[in-house]
Amino acid sequence: MDSVTPFIVLSSILFTIGAIGVLTRRNAIVVFMCVELMLNACNLALVAFAHQYGNLDGQIAAFFVMVVAAAEVVVGLAIIMTIFRTRRSASVDDASLLKY
């Protein structure tokens, strides 16, 4: 088993679970956590491929993903806070006025 395939498969599974979580959970914060899960799954794949090919570029990419994730979390959570402040709710289904 001298391969990183199990890591990649694990990464896919985590990514899928995160996606399903985004689709099914209604709490905006939990949805956000699921997005983080998906990002981490991607990171795992990147690091695994870096290991596979003996190249640090994958690790650098994972590093950038983390930075972007941090920025995204900061802004996203601020948005959630703002919505919560006005609507008294953190449910993504409550913010559904923009429709047909």
Binding site: V4, V9, S12, F15
Partner: peptide, 21 residues
Amino acid sequence: LGLTLVLGLAQISLGSVVGLG
């Protein structure tokens, strides 16, 4: 999606690991 990814990955042989040593 998950099945497609896993099955798709199963089709690929990545070759031997180079490693970061």
